[in-house]
Simulated scan of single mutants.
Amino acid sequence: MEPGAKLKPWGNLSTSLVVSGQEVNSAFLLAELQLADSAEFSSSEGVGIYSGPGWATFTVDERHSKSADEQAAELIRFLSPRKLALDALKEAGKPVKVDMAGVAESGSGLYVSPDVLAGLAELGVPVTFTTVRASGEDEEDPLAWLD
């Protein structure tokens, strides 16, 4: 798909570095990526660290840009100088990936430019895509009538 083509983007889009493991949390990820003292990180709109039991993410969300390409480029901009830290996380046995997640509706798409895809490849971590259902949407199986 050409960049100029009119394609409705995924809704609620976010692009994240996801790290999993027993002791992984926000403080762990901030320290590992050496972001705790980064003025650039703390002043970036739509860029943050989130965590739950056994996982943490470094996320660029729609407040930064609604474009998957721009979100991934921003993530690459932060992570490229920290590639050694990413490699250390992988060597320590931590599952590490980049995930692009959002609500994919009929007629929507996700465009990522070749340059950004190359930048993601240079990070050396898998890239996954997660689609989620919009809240309030009917969860009935649309093919249930076939029974």
Rank of each mutant, 00 (worst) to 15 (best):
M1L: 12
G4M: 10
G4D: 11
A5S: 10
K6A: 12
K6H: 12
L7Q: 11
L7Y: 01
K8V: 11
K8Q: 10
K8R: 15
P9S: 09
N12K: 13
S14D: 11
T15R: 01
V19E: 02
G21H: 06
G21V: 05
Q22S: 12
E23Y: 06
E23I: 02
N25E: 04
N25K: 07
N25H: 12
S26H: 05
F28V: 02
F28C: 03
L33M: 09
L33I: 09
L33Y: 01
Q34E: 15
A36C: 00
D37L: 13
A39G: 02
A39D: 10
F41E: 02
G46T: 03
G48K: 13
G48L: 14
S51L: 05
G52K: 12
P53K: 12
G54N: 14
W55F: 15
D61T: 03
D61L: 05
D61E: 08
E62R: 10
K66S: 11
S67I: 07
D69M: 03
D69W: 03
E70N: 10
A73L: 12
I76A: 10
S80A: 15
P81G: 02
R82E: 00
R82Q: 01
K83V: 13
A85L: 04
A85D: 08
D87Q: 14
E91A: 14
E91S: 15
A92D: 11
K97Y: 02
D99Q: 13
M100S: 02
A101V: 10
G102T: 06
V103T: 14
E105A: 14
S106H: 06
S106M: 07
G109H: 09
G109K: 06
V112F: 07
S113D: 08
S113I: 04
P114W: 00
D115C: 03
D115L: 12
V116N: 00
V116F: 03
G119T: 08
E122A: 15
V125R: 01
P126G: 04
P126N: 04
V127F: 08
T131C: 04
E137M: 09
D138V: 14
D138L: 15
E140T: 12
D141V: 00
P142M: 01
P142C: 01
L143G: 00
L143E: 09
A144N: 00
L146Q: 11
D147V: 07
D147W: 05
D147M: 07
